[in-house]
Write a protein that binds this DNA or RNA. Structure first.
Lengths: 143, 143
DNA sequence: ATAGGTGCAAATGGTTTGCGAAAAC
DNA sequence: GTTTTCGCAAACCATTTGCACCTAT
């Protein structure tokens, strides 16, 4: 399928299959991020015949339509989540793996700054922070 | 190998093989990021018998020693670069794939803010921005 | 009937690992 | 002599793709 600058038109035209509606519904009802396999697991509860390939194909489609964001929170796989109105960012604990989402108006200011300095048209901003959470920062770091 | 909190000691103890010194030298002499395969290509020019597995094993080691940073600038593979004193961030063009590195004092301020609000001990901050560069933002977006 | 979506299984490709040989200490 | 690293090939695993079938228009 092609995507032109007037995306809103294609968009509902294309949410036309059972599988797509199901996948998008799951994504919409999930707070935070999930990976392809988790989405697949949730999907087969409702549609036992859906295939993992369909999940991947539609994740790619949703990403192109900018309905979801893809992120790389660890080295193993990608995570996806519904794109919400407000940008939000991730704070990952290196010890226990916990992920905290947060928003920050300072990032918007930063985007402005960079947009101007680098003459870029910025469409997505993601801040990734990593460290040790309250519970883990006391303990010896398990390597 | 084990890594304890006093990393500086292990560090030079462990840069003890020809292959490690070569790989680290290449990383040190490269501005910006490179992936495992590029590093491997550069390495076999000097040491034709070095293997890709050794490259990966040592990238992992360097990462654990915090000599390099690993990042996911696209979905295909990981990129690595020498950790430098100043944090710097990435601005990626969705159309031509160009990556611009930049620094920003505003990010440091942001880290302070989050560190305080979330009670996290933050060890790494990476801002990822994506959009269209000067050259590409005029053209129709090739999907 | 035509175009596009799906399911399945096989392919792809970056990364990791098992193992015997070589190097470091 | 013991421990660690290396090179090679095979394994792994997330993701993609070829193809035949299905579904909606």
């Amino acid at each position: 399928m092609r995507i032109n600058s007037n995306q809103r038109i294609d968009l509902k035209d294309k949410l036309d299959t059972r599988q797509r509606r199901l996948l998008l519904a799951i994504l919409r009802n999930t707070r935070g991020h999930m990976d392809a396999r988790q989405l697949y697991q949730r999907a087969i509860e409702k549609d036992p015949h859906i295939s993992l390939a369909t999940v991947y194909r539609n994740l790619r489609l949703f990403k192109e339509l900018e309905l979801i964001d893809e992120m790389h929170l660890d080295e193993a796989r990608c995570y996806y989540e519904i794109r919400s109105s407000a940008d939000h960012h991730h704070l990952v604990c290196k010890s226990c793996g916990k992920v905290i989402d947060f928003e920050s108006p300072t990032v918007a200011q930063l985007v402005e700054e960079v947009q101007h300095n680098c003459d870029f048209d910025i469409t997505k901003a993601m801040l990734y922070l990593e460290g040790y959470c309250r519970e883990c920062k006391g303990k010896a770091k398990t390597s």
